[in-house]
Design a protein around this nucleic acid. Structure first.
Lengths: 208, 208, 208, 208
DNA sequence: GATGAATGAGGCTTCATTCAT
DNA sequence: TATGAATGAAGCCTCATTCAT
C-alpha cells in the first residue's frame, strides 16, 4: 500500500540503515546531555526523548547506559579510520597515516576528557583491560591493517608480526590515554602520544 | 599530662575548633571526590568515609549535599578576604586590594568551572538570586568594608553609599561569573572581571 | 476463546481501565492503612504490598506519598458529582442538587477528619490555597456547572457570573472545611456548611 | 554560696521533686505534640524543646520514645486511683469506688483514642500482654487493693482470692479497651466497660 | 544530671533495566 | 521492533538512640 513490495535484501538494507540512524541519533543525544549535565545527571528517559523515541527503545540499541560511553571510543576510531583511509592510499606513507590517525583521535578525545575518564571508571574493568578490551578504544584492528600496508610498502621490516606490533601500539596508546585522564594537571594528549609512539616506531621503520 | 586544665570558655573554643576542623575535613573530602567522580557520581557515604566519619554525621555539618557546593563560594571568599587583609593595611590602596581579591577569587574558581557551574544549576534558585543570595558567592560584605576604607583614605568619593556600591559590584561580579560558567568556549574569567569592574570603579575613584 | 479480537481503540481502553483499577487499588490500600496506622506510621512499601505491587510502582501512580491524600478530595468530589448527576436531571432543582452534593461531601469527609486535617497540614501549602488549589477539594468545576443549570432553569439571576459565584461558594466551603479540621471540639460539618451556604444562595435564588 | 547547705535527705527530696516535675513537663509536651501532629510526626527534639530541655535529656526520663505512650496509662491510673482514694473511704462502697475508677479512666482514655491505639500497636507486644504488662494500663494493683477493702467491708465474699479477682478484672478491662481501639465505629467505652464488669461483680458482691 | 554530636537504621524517591503487549 | 509499566537497587535525608564531655 504505502510502498511497493521489495525483495528481502533491499528491505533489510533499508531497515539496517534506519536502525543505524536511530542508533546514531541516540548516541548524539546522549553525548550532548552528558556534556551539559554529566553522565549521572542524565537519565535514559531524557536521552530517548531528545532522540524522539520512547525510553524502552534505548535498550534495543545499547545494552546498558554505559555502553554509550564505550561506543564513544569505537565510533571515533571507526570514523577516523574511515577518513584516514578514504582520502588515503595516495597521501603519505602508511605509518604516517597511522600517526595522523592517532593524533586526530587524541585531539577528539581531548574535547571530552570528563567523559573519557568516565569510561575507564564505569565502563571498563581491570579484566577487560587485560583482555585487551579497552572500552572500545582499541586501535588494534586499524593499526594491524596499516602496519601490514607499511610492510607491503617497505616502510617496516616484513619479518615482524604485524599483530604483535599493533598490540604493542595499542597498549602504549591506552596507557597514555588512561594516564592523561587521571592526571590532575591537564596537558596536550596528542603531543605526548606522538612522542611516545615514535619511540616504538623508531625501531621498526623510518619516521615520516 | 596531655594538657593543663582550662576554663570553660577555652574548652568551648576547643570544641568549636574541633567542629570547624571536621567540617573542613568533610568539605575537602567532598570536593576531591566531586573533582574526580563528578557531583552526581559521588555519594554522601563516600564523602564521610573519606573523612573518617559515619554517613549521618554529614548532615550535622551540611544540611544537604548541595550545601557543600554552596560552601565552596563562601569559603573561598572568606579565605581570600582574610589573606588580602592579612598582608594588608600597608600594601597598596583599598581599591587595589578589592581588585586583587576579585582577581584571586576568579583564579581560584577557574580551577573548578564544572563545580561552580553546578552550583548555579543545583544550588541556587532564581528567588535566591533575586534575594541576593548567590550561593555563597556574595562579595557584598568584604566589598562594603573595603569601599569604606577606600572612602576613608580618600580613594573614593565619600558621599556615595558604600553598601550600594558594594551591591552593584556584587551584581556585576555575579553576572560575569554566571556568564562565564554558561559559555561554551572557555576564556579567562579573571581578566574579564578586572576589565568590567574597572568600568564601575572608573567613576568612583582613581584606578590603581 | 478468552475474548474476541478487538480494534486498537478498544484495547487502549482496556489498558487504560487496568491502570485506573490499579490506581484505585493503591488508593484504597493507602487509605485503609492511613486510617489504622496514621499517615506517618504507614510506609509506601506497606501500601504497595497491600495492593499486590512492588514499592516502585507506587510512584507510577502517585508522584509522592502525600499525593494520595490530595487525591482523597478529588476523588470524593468526582464520585459524588457523578452520582448527583446520575440520579439527576429530574429530582429537584440544580441548586438543590448542589446543596445535596455539598452535604454528601461533608458527610464523607467527616468520616476521615484526621486525614482531611493532614491534607491541609502536609499536602497543601499557603500558595496552593491562594491559587485556589486546595488539595483537590475544589468544588469550582461542579459548582460552576450546576449554577449554570440553575440560571438556565430560572432558579438564579442569570446576570450573575456563574464562575464568580462558584468561586465564592468554593471559598466558603473551603474556609469551613479548614475551620472544622482545626477545631478541637468536633461538630457536624454538613449542617454548618448547609447553613452557611444558604447565606450565599439566599441572595441569588430561592431556597429549595 | 547560692543556698545554705542542707542535709542529704532534704536535698534528695528537692532533687527528687525537680526530677518528677521535669518528667511531667516532658510528658505534657509530648502528649500535646502527639495530639496535634501524631506520634510519628513528632520528634524527640521537638518534645524536649517544648519542655525547655535539650534532646539528650529526654532519655534520662524515658528510656525510649514509646515509653511516653506507655506512661499515659500508668499515669492516668495513678492519678485517678489517688483521687478516688483521696476523697475516699467515706463515700460509697469499695466496689463502687472501683467501678467509678474504671469509668473515669475510660472517659479519660476516650479523649485519646488515637494515642491509646498506638500504645497497643507500638508500645505493647504480645508477650507483654501475656505477661500481664499491658502497656501501663494495668488495674491489677488498685483493683487488688479495693477488692481487699471490699472483702473487709463485707461487700465481697472473703474466701475468694483478691489477686485472682483483680487479675480477672484487669483482663476484662484490657480486652474491652483493645476492642474499642480497634473498632471502626466509635462507641462510648465507659458504658460498655461498666456493663461488662457488672457481669463479673454480679457474682462476687452486691451491685451498688 | 544536662548537653549536643555521632551514629546508622529506615523512609521516600529516582531511575536503570526487564518484560508483556 | 517500539512502547511504557513494573521492578528493586541505591541515593538522600530524618531521627531515635548512644555516648563523651
Amino acid at each position: 500500500m504505502t510502498e511497493p513490495m521489495r525483495g528481502r535484501q533491499e528491505q533489510g538494507g533499508r531497515r539496517e540503515q534506519a536502525k543505524l540512524e536511530r542508533r546514531e541519533r541516540i548516541y548524539e543525544a546522549a553525548l550532548n546531555l552528558f556534556r551539559t549535565q554529566g553522565y549521572e545527571g542524565t537519565t535514559v528517559d531524557q536521552i530517548t526523548r531528545h532522540a524522539g523515541l520512547a525510553k524502552g527503545t534505548f535498550f534495543n540499541y545499547f545494552p546498558t547506559k554505559d555502553a554509550v560511553l564505550r561506543y564513544l571510543g569505537t565510533r571515533e576510531i571507526a570514523r577516523l579510520s574511515l577518513s584516514s583511509n578514504g582520502n588515503g592510499h595516495h597521501r603519505g606513507t602508511a605509518i604516517g597515516k597511522l600517526k595522523r590517525l592517532m593524533a586526530a583521535l587524541a585531539e577528539n578525545l581531548e574535547q571530552d576528557r570528563t567523559l573519557v575518564s568516565l569510561i575507564f571508571r564505569k565502563g571498563v574493568t581491570a579484566p577487560d583491560l587485560l583482555a585487551g578490551d579497552a572500552g572500545g578504544f582499541s586501535l588494534q584492528p586499524v593499526a594491524s591493517l596499516l602496519i601490514r600496508q607499511a610492510q607491503y610498502n617497505g616502510e617496516v621490516n616484513p619479518d615482524l608480526d604485524p599483530d604483535a606490533l599493533a598490540s604493542a601500539l595499542d597498549a602504549l596508546y591506552l596507557q597514555q590515554l588512561v594516564r592523561w585522564c587521571e592526571s590532575t594537571r591537564p596537558y596536550p594528549l596528542s603531543e605526548r602520544l606522538t612522542g611516545i609512539v615514535d619511540l616504538l616506531l623508531l625501531g621498526i621503520g623510518k619516521l615520516e
